[in-house]
Design a protein around this nucleic acid. Structure first.
Length: 666
DNA sequence: CGTCAGCGGGTTTTT
DNA sequence: CCCGCTGACG
């Protein structure tokens, strides 16, 4: 219906869309219409080649990207067909496979999914166990780092034949026990989900074939960010059909720290290769700055972005005296930009390297006063995109732990979290006794609790503690009963009643003020379950609960927690450089572009500088028309004021593209 | 066993 | 500066 030039494909885009067979590598520069190519390609397969929509698989990196693709595809072929195409993140896709087939690897389909902090808790416990209580536990950071690395590579152990180094041996032992516990708890985490999917494909040819047959055309977005395990999964999955299309941009690889291998895209064995370098997003001052910056990297396919949009405004750069004034200056400029260019708030994004920077910006936006046609207003509307806020809140994690424990009885991690929450007299002493016994006798925690309550095992618990354990088991039983007969939402409401969560939260709120949103969060959680239930009407409640808990663990459908209709309201968008990948905004503000922030001081040591440069490149190329880069001379760090230097990367952008302004210029 | 105050330690990015 | 943890006390 619309006749914008962007609705038609340029020759290379068209070629990428029509080259459906074989292994296709699409090198797509920032803003070159990558998503458009992917969605048109799916539409082409369905409409021109008669491929059933269900035979098409599109894998993305984030839920946001998957949702965006689904939306655009719906626009092309209608919602009914679009819904039959599998579009999901790698992790969601693996979740689906594992729910169906993981029993072949000795887990059950009720498995729990642990996040980073769950793993950390477990590692802490394991470390205490290995070292005993008398020894001081060393900082776990280096151990965690070693472990994370090994696991992201799908290794169950660190390198063999390593130096007899105490720390490595310790880490190895932790890793070994962690793996055993995860299995005993019937639990996976983000890394092992991928790892076990790969293992399933390798060890069970029938299962591999089943999944191979389900998808005859596979497309992968952001291929530069895939890890070796993800590479293996896709290779196995597409071996039979041979049809694999990967789309990516080596210059936008920013997840090396999570195990992404630039090698995947640099060495991809293709039968067809297509490069998209015409940019349809930004004016040329922005693109030339980005090109100049990224030219400083060595590991890359050379390319030069260009667009037909003219030079546009130069990039604006300013230095504020401190971080508060920087944030205020940004708020001020947002209002100015709105008036001058007629942008809506939602056209404007504020991007930062690390989440910690959002706080100060929020404060400035909240208190900023400005004049509108309707009078003086206070507060610029904003929305934080992809913040890790909600699901990490303790009250939500606690409630979720109850659900996890109900779904997966073996989930000792979840059980331990809630045996004494809300407080019911089972203190540390009792908990220690319980866990020690469970470990020593290799008796699953839940069974031990039941035996203890029944008097079959005596742990010499205090009367109070014993009563607490019994009460706890009764609660779980009652909730399970309730879940069987009613809806999930009703079951959860019953649970909340039963544990007197309201009273517990009131108590917490009383002791540390400013927490009154906790109860609100709980209510929001309940209504999110109701919504979920409505969306999945007709499904059996136990599988529904499984799905809900799984989705939440993968932060799927998180939109339901991010205000009513994310993106609908007219609000400035705040997010990290990482989260901004794949998005575009008429105007972008990059704040805190200082030398310890970008490049981050922690990444300067290893191979990180090139990745940090790519990260800034990604951020810069989000902007369509206006880009403002700012920094503060002084910034509070660890509570103390400290001087900052401009990012070294700024000096790599030719001065002619930059316009330096005074921070308080009106 | 629960509570509270005081202390030291720590900030990258995400599924 | 904001936590989470520790240790003393009720």
């Amino acid at each position: 219906m619309s006749h914008k030039a962007s609705d038609s494909l340029n020759p290379n885009q068209a070629k990428a869309v029509r080259t459906t067979e074989g292994r296709v590598l699409v090198l797509a520069g920032a803003g070159s219409g990558k998503t458009k190519v992917l969605t048109h390609r799916a539409a082409f397969l369905i409409q021109e080649k008669g491929i059933p929509p269900s035979k098409i698989l599109g894998l993305t990196f984030t839920n946001k990207a998957a949702a965006e693709m689904r939306k655009r595809l719906s626009g092309l072929i209608g919602a009914t067909s679009a819904e039959q195409v599998t579009l999901s993140t790698f992790h969601s896709f693996c979740l689906r496979i594992l729910r169906e087939d993981i029993h072949r690897l000795g887990f059950t389909d009720a498995f729990s999914i642990y996040d980073e902090s769950d793993i950390e808790r477990m590692v802490t416990g394991i470390a205490k166990d290995i070292l005993g209580t008398e020894k001081q536990i060393p900082s776990l950071a280096p151990t965690m780092a070693l472990i994370a690395k090994a696991r992201s590579q799908g290794k169950l152990f660190l390198k063999e034949g390593m130096e007899p180094n105490w720390h490595d041996e310790f880490a190895n032992e932790v890793l070994k026990r962690l793996g055993q516990s995860m299995r005993a708890y019937n639990a996976l985490d983000f890394d092992s989900m991928l790892f076990f999917t790969k293992q399933l494909f390798e060890e069970c040819p029938d299962i591999l074939e089943k999944w191979q047959d389900r998808f005859s055309y596979v497309m992968i977005d952001e291929y530069q960010d895939t890890s070796p395990v993800q590479y293996q999964i896709t290779e196995l999955l597409t071996r039979k059909s041979g049809n694999l299309c990967v789309v990516g941009d080596d210059d936008q690889s920013i997840y090396g720290w999570r195990g992404a291998h630039l090698k995947n895209i640099l060495d991809f064995q293709y039968t067809h290769r297509i490069t998209l370098d015409q940019n349809y997003r930004s004016t040329n001052h922005i693109l030339k700055s980005a090109n100049a910056l990224i030219a400083g990297n060595t590991m890359r396919h050379e390319k030069n972005l260009w667009s037909g949009f003219g030079d546009g405004d130069p990039l604006e750069v300013f230095v504020a005296p401190d971080e508060m004034m920087e944030a205020e200056a940004i708020a001020h400029r947002i209002i100015k930009l709105k008036e001058l260019k007629g942008f809506a708030f939602r056209d404007i994004a504020i991007l930062y390297r690390s989440n910690a920077l959002s706080r100060i910006m929020e404060k400035a936006l909240l208190k900023h006063m400005y004049v509108t046609p309707g009078g003086v207003k206070r507060g610029i509307p904003y929305e934080i995109v992809g913040g890790t806020e909600f699901y990490e809140r303790r009250e939500i994690k606690d409630l979720l732990a109850y659900l996890k424990a109900i779904v997966n009885e073996k989930d000792a991690e979840a059980l331990l979290r809630i045996i004494n929450y809300p407080r019911r007299g089972v203190g540390d002493e009792s908990l220690d006794r319980i866990t020690a016994f469970s470990r020593k006798e290799k008796l699953p925690l839940m069974e031990l609790l039941k035996k203890t309550a029944a008097g079959e095992v005596s742990l010499d618990l205090s009367n109070q503690a014993l009563a607490g354990v019994k009460q706890f088991l009764h609660i779980l039983e009652d909730v399970q009963g309730k879940l069987k007969e009613g809806s999930v939402a009703q079951g959860v409401e019953f649970l909340i009643e039963r544990i007197r969560l309201k009273a517990a939260i009131d108590l917490e709120v009383k002791s540390q003020k400013g927490q009154d949103f906790k109860w609100e969060n709980v209510q929001e959680f309940v209504s999110s379950i109701q919504e979920f239930e409505e969306e999945h009407a007709g499904e059996e409640s136990s599988s529904l609960l499984k799905k809900f808990v799984g989705d939440l663990s993968l932060k799927n459908n998180l939109a339901r927690f991010e205000g009513k209709d994310s993106g609908q309201t007219d609000a400035v968008q705040l997010m990290t450089f990482h989260s901004s990948k794949g998005l575009e905004f008429k105007a972008c503000f990059l704040m805190g572009v200082e030398d310890h922030i970008v490049p981050h001081e922690k990444s300067v040591l290893d191979v990180g500088v090139e990745e940090e440069r790519r990260l800034l490149y990604v951020a810069i190329t989000r902007a369509m028309r206006n880009l403002t880069i700012s920094m503060a001379k002084e910034r509070k760090r660890l509570g103390k004021q400290a001087v900052s230097r401009p990012s070294r990367f700024l000096f790599e952008i030719p001065k002619e593209y930059l316009k330096t302004t005074k921070w308080d210029e009106v």
